[in-house]
């Protein structure tokens, strides 16, 4: 229960950050899904398999906070949880770069799907490409950070 409350607060904080920086980043054609990436990192770092119902409910919570259509984040959170759980052992033989590419491209797919649903009339390939580049760079920076500051990166949510 305590764990769930912690994770919920973590997601709400992430959503708050995402909502507040989105307007600034949109001027540079960037969509940075930090909530989705944060949840993906959590599923990746956890020792046990994340529960699909938990992923679904967290997705619905994010839908509510972001004011998007219900089911959008719920579906995408379920899918990323399934993917990460399926490849959890394969990740161990991946290099950091490959893992970063996986998360960066997952975030790009997330941006693509959400834009298709929320912004179909003004779908922008420039935004998708720039966001893709930005998200991959961000994931690489996180990997570099965890390599140089392993004590901080070992902290559990």
């Amino acid at each position: 229960m305590k764990d769930m409350v912690k994770k919920t607060i973590f997601l709400m904080v992430m959503s708050y950050v995402e909502i507040n920086i989105a307007a600034t980043l949109s001027n540079f054609f960037i969509i940075f899904p930090i909530t989705f990436l944060g949840y993906s990192f959590y599923v990746y770092r956890t020792n046990s398999n994340a529960n699909p119902i938990e992923a679904f409910l967290f997705g619905l919570l994010v839908d509510l906070i972001h004011g998007s259509y219900f089911g959008l984040n719920a579906t995408l959170f379920c899918l990323i949880t399934y993917l990460i759980n399926s490849y959890s052992n394969a990740f161990k033989i991946f290099s950091y770069l490959q893992v970063c590419l996986f998360f960066g491209l997952s975030a790009t797919a997330y941006v693509g799907f959400t834009q298709l649903v929320l912004n179909i009339y003004n779908f922008s390939y420039i935004t998708l490409l720039v966001s893709s580049f930005f998200n991959i760079i961000f994931c690489i920076l996180v990997a570099v950070f965890t390599s140089y500051f392993p004590k901080i990166s070992r902290l559990k949510i």
Partner: peptide, 29 residues
């Protein structure tokens, strides 16, 4: 410790939840 990949039962649960999510999304839109 190695993590266990989703079992067939869990895969069915994932499939049902994704279908439910898409259904809710369709209804909401």
């Amino acid at each position: 410790m190695a993590r266990i990949t989703p079992t067939p039962g869990q895969k069915i649960l994932y499939f049902l939840l994704v279908s439910l999510g898409i259904g809710i999304l369709y209804i909401d839109i």
